Amino acid sequence: MKKINGTIASPKGFYADGFHSGLKRKRKDIGWIYSEFPASAAGVFTTNAVQAAPIQVTKSALASDSLQAIIVNSGNANACTGKNGVLHAQEMQQMAAEKLGLSANSVAVASTGIIGQELPMNKIKKGIFGLEKTAGVPSYFHEAILTTDTRTKEIVVEAEINGAIVTMAGVAKGSGMIHPNMATMLAFITTDAAVEKELLQQTLKMITDKTFNQITVDGDTSTNDMVLVLANGASGGAVIQKDDSGYQVLIDMLSQVMEELAKMIAQDGEGATKLIEVKVAHAKDQLTARMIAKKIVGSSLVKTAMFGADPNWGRIICAIGYANPSIDPDKVDISIGSLPVLLNSQPQVFEEMKMREILVQDKIVITVDLHEGTAVGLAWGCDLTYKYVEINALYHT
């Protein structure tokens, strides 16, 4: 498997475009992904009990045999908008379907932006009218899904499966209100592999638990967020089965795409200056390892310490304790970067200048060893800065 340059439309048979319809002042705000062939589709969604209208419409579309397109807008979440919100999401779906020459239930819908405002359908119509079916600029789609993001987030990988060269591409948005099980993020993945729908869904869910569900920026779980995968089989290879060697390659490709997108989201957290990666080793089980890692990276006190380059490891051991009270508190190791700060729960002396060099980097790795088992968990987040408060204090205005 290798990483290559490309876009969400790099896999065979996929096209994409983006357009500025006026939902946002300047940046592109509506886009679509189109497959010329019906594609197996899988999705995971926010666990917030309040779910936006586009999620309801997309869940219904996923019940059909296949999807061929995804229409997405930014600048307006179409969330908490009542019956009109659902009607508008369905109208958005229908307009995109008609423009692409598809049935409505083969089109997924996603929205992101401000909650509680109805979609201005005149602008949505203008945007869909401006999108190109096969002559668009795929990178415009990457731009069209952004809200407070400072950069686009994309990755393309290539590998051989069942004798065919398979390409997989991913693009995501997410910067604030990030605390998945799913949370504020949208991610779209395309591949020209041939995968049976149920297997694709199982695989997506499995990898989501280890990637997108292991990032946090601010602890808020959103109303809109989803990950969708389309697999159209255009590479020409055999349909991937769970018991063949090609399935592991598919897992590896999807894992790399989703993990790298997750890290990009965490690193681009609103106001962030540093990516924080936490690795918990030798836990009793994988769930314990993942949850402890996520509690550490989600701690506001840990996040502010990393922002201030303060090696306050007491905040880390505190987060470990409230994440899982059943651990043995007398045999915990903690390292910040390459420097141990706690061994067998005993404080360690470290060189302050070396620690300073570690903490001013734009990526900080915290490693925890519980000495209780063999399981490992990873989580990613960012520091908490003055800028985060400024962005979110003025988000609506």
Results as ranks from 00 to 15, higher is better:
120 P>M: 09
63 A>N: 15
74 S>C: 10
140 Y>E: 13
116 G>R: 00
110 A>T: 15
103 S>C: 02
129 F>H: 09
87 L>M: 14
77 A>V: 04
79 A>T: 04
31 G>V: 05
68 Q>E: 07
97 A>G: 07
62 L>D: 01
42 A>Y: 02
16 A>D: 07
117 Q>T: 10
43 G>P: 01
52 A>C: 09
43 G>W: 12
103 S>T: 12
148 T>D: 10
38 P>W: 00
88 H>I: 11
101 G>A: 08
144 A>R: 12
102 L>E: 01
18 G>M: 02
110 A>M: 14
61 A>P: 03
86 V>D: 02
37 F>P: 00
110 A>K: 03
63 A>W: 00
90 Q>C: 11
119 L>A: 11
148 T>K: 13
151 R>Y: 11
143 E>R: 12
69 A>M: 09
31 G>P: 03
92 M>E: 10
123 K>H: 04
71 I>G: 08
29 D>C: 06
33 I>W: 00
87 L>I: 15
94 Q>P: 02
60 S>L: 11
107 V>I: 12
87 L>T: 12
28 K>N: 08
16 A>C: 09
42 A>V: 07
57 V>A: 05
91 E>K: 15
63 A>K: 15
130 G>C: 07
32 W>G: 15
116 G>N: 00
83 K>E: 14
38 P>S: 08
130 G>D: 02
27 R>H: 05
46 T>K: 03
150 T>G: 06
118 E>L: 14
57 V>G: 01
141 F>K: 13
56 Q>Y: 15
51 Q>I: 03
42 A>H: 10
114 I>L: 05
142 H>P: 04
35 S>D: 00
120 P>D: 13
124 I>G: 00
139 S>W: 13
64 S>E: 11
42 A>D: 03
113 G>V: 04
18 G>H: 01
66 S>W: 07
149 D>N: 03
140 Y>D: 14
133 K>E: 13
139 S>D: 08
60 S>P: 00
149 D>Y: 06
23 L>G: 09
146 L>Q: 12
112 T>K: 04
85 G>E: 11
56 Q>F: 15
147 T>N: 03
136 G>D: 15
143 E>S: 13
86 V>Y: 01
67 L>S: 05
115 I>A: 06
82 G>L: 13
51 Q>K: 06
56 Q>L: 15
33 I>S: 10
43 G>H: 10
26 K>N: 08
46 T>R: 05
116 G>H: 00
75 G>V: 07
129 F>Q: 15
107 V>K: 11
67 L>H: 04
115 I>C: 03
94 Q>S: 08
46 T>Y: 01
149 D>G: 09
88 H>R: 01
130 G>K: 11
123 K>I: 14
83 K>Q: 08
90 Q>N: 14
48 N>I: 07
100 L>R: 06
